[in-house]
Design a protein around this nucleic acid. Sequence first.
RNA 1: GCGGUUGUAGCUCACUCGGUUAGAGCACUGGUUUGUGGUACCAGGGGUAGUGGGUUCGAAUCCCAUCAUCCGCCCCA
Length: 451
Amino acid sequence: MQKPSNARGTRDFGPKEMAKRNYVFNIIRKHFEQFGFQSIETPAIENLSTLTGKYGDEGDQLLFKILNSGDYLSKLSEQDFQEGSKKFTYKVSEKGLRYDLTVPFARFVSMNRNDLAFPFRRYQIQPVWRADRPQKGRYREFYQCDADIIGSNSLLNEAELITLFQAIFSSLHLKANLVINSRKVLAGVVDVIGMTDHFMDFAVAIDKLDKIGWEAVSKELADKGFSLDQCQVLADLIVFEGNNLAKIDRLRAFFNGNDLGLAGIKEIEDVLKFIQQNGFDNTNIVFDYRLARGLSYYTGLIFEGKAIDIPFGSIAGGGRYDNLTTDFGLPNMSGVGLSFGIERMIDVMDALNLFPNIPVSGSKVLFAYFDEEGQTQAFQYVNELRRQGIPSEIYPEMGKIKKPFEFADKKKIPYVAVLGEQELLQNKLNLKNMESGEQELLSLQELIQKF
RNA sequence: GCGGUUGUAGCUCACUCGGUUAGAGCACUGGUUUGUGGUACCAGGGGUAGUGGGUUCGAAUCCCAUCAUCCGCCCCA
């Protein structure tokens, strides 16, 4: 016998966990649909060529690759083997598991461009896989809940996603800030200090500011070739604190004629205006020009949702991308999307005790009996309750009456209906309220009336 | 890919310096109670100490390897 265990970085979800997950999934799905997003699904397996090159070198390393079927070695030569594992991998693997939902979505849009009504709004709730080293809040299989609007440049879309974000978090009673920034602001900053071609180095380093502090970030920047003077200019910018408007003014002065940076500022300003003018709450929207986000495909506005009452990394993220479908032969298709990380949201909600009492079993009544006569009657009753829309079940074993009671207690089924000799004679059932312990003799009709 | 942590019953964890038959709580099974769960009391089952090797009269305990785990880095939700 082998000791059973989960594959590394994966988890099972029992009825208890699923009740929570479904609670969150349902709220997210409801809001996605209210905002007019249409549901799609794509396969877990994609051609490896669809996935590689979209997430940077690091991302390619983290792709789960599927070994070719059949005799995958037969077409290989000794030379292929000599070339090392990196190249060799792609000779024996042509498929992989999806790494996120956005790239498969881009493939889908490109393939279905003639059938879709643009701007196309889709939502997608599916698992993704990353061959990462598992850690706290970090798994090898996790769900993403994505909503994207593609085929429109309007900033109205950004505003829509922000209100969607607010609606979902407010429904979950989860207090979160939405941090926003624009890739153009970041690009403008490196432009101004003359490090235009070090954009990614800058973005990666600045993204860690919250976690490791300016000291460590400036050290990393120095390692990447930023001079002391340049770091000092950045430091002055970074220490500036203030509300959104103050930050916008500060940056506008900093950009002083840099078109890229000013364009970024205008995006932020316009989106904030949209939200405010339409009477939506903008107190939890924080413009932070230090936000960078890792994924390389973002080109415009970027967002990140962060829980307020607890430090826990980001629980939602997204942004605008201009060229995602270009690789699939569909240029000029700008889109913007928002992704919710449900596992982290659940971790945060657990920590803050935000889950309402969610019943683990849907059953309201469990039928118990002593003999075949009771079983026959119970089987009729339980099916009548189900026809009436009352979820209920029947204990399948005859014998000790204690068993069904223990069972109901464990499953938190609120009522047990006993069909014994006396009850059968009167055409009634003995209904026990498992919480109060009270019992009453009822007819089936009277039982139905209770719900 | 790099650095560290931990591995003992289904789960959470004890076991002093290496020394008899490896313990506890929870969970499970049965009973007190053959028409009543959740509380209480009684009894019971369940472990080759991750795996493999070594040191020793003797190893859960010390050493080596290996696998797994969790944490940090990289990156990320």
